[in-house]
Structure formats: C-alpha cells, structure tokens
Amino acid sequence: MDFSGLSPAEQAQVTKIVEKRQFQGFLSMYGKLVEKCFQTCVNDFTSKSLSSKEDQCVNNCAAKFMAHSERVSARFAEMNADVMSGQKNVSG
C-alpha cells in the first residue's frame, strides 16, 4: 500500500493503526483456520483426544493453508503490480 503521500506524523499514526489491524487480521485468520481444519479433519467423536490421524491432518491442513496463502499473496502482488504499471495482463 502506498502511504508516501502522507506526512511523517500521519505515517506514524498509520503504522500504529496498521499494526493493530494486522493483529486483528491474524486473530481472525487463526479462528477461521481452526474452523476449516476442524471441519475437514475431525469427524470421529468416539474419543476426546485427537487421534494420530486427525492430528496429522490438522498439521497438514495448517501447513497447506499457509502455503496456499503465500501463493495467493504472491500472485496477488504480481497482479497489483501489473495493474499499477497499466499493462493489464489478461493471460493464463
């Protein structure tokens, strides 16, 4: 995001607000990821602890989500860079 048009005082305040939102964003992502992995991996309620299979699934789920999120982030950044430079690449 481009905040270069702002004064230093404004940028300092923006940084503070951005940090707060990043934390909120992290918590929200955490909650959603737990829900997603729980729904996907946990289907057996004959025991109150996670089975090793469930535990493995949850670990994979979290790892895979992070890989997914990073990939989307990379493509998203490329896309935005394309839009900014005005050369809209409609390919793929």
Binding site: D2, S7, E10
Partner: peptide
C-alpha cells in the same frame, strides 16, 4: 495511489 499532493506535517484525518 491517488493521494500524492500536499506535504504539511499536520495530521489530516480525512486523508488518513
């Protein structure tokens, strides 16, 4: 990146 002009050090709540 529409915001580009102005350079005062004052907090401009609107631009923020």
């Amino acid at each position: 990146g529409g915001a580009s002009s102005s350079s005062s050090n004052a907090l401009n709540q609107e631009r923020l």
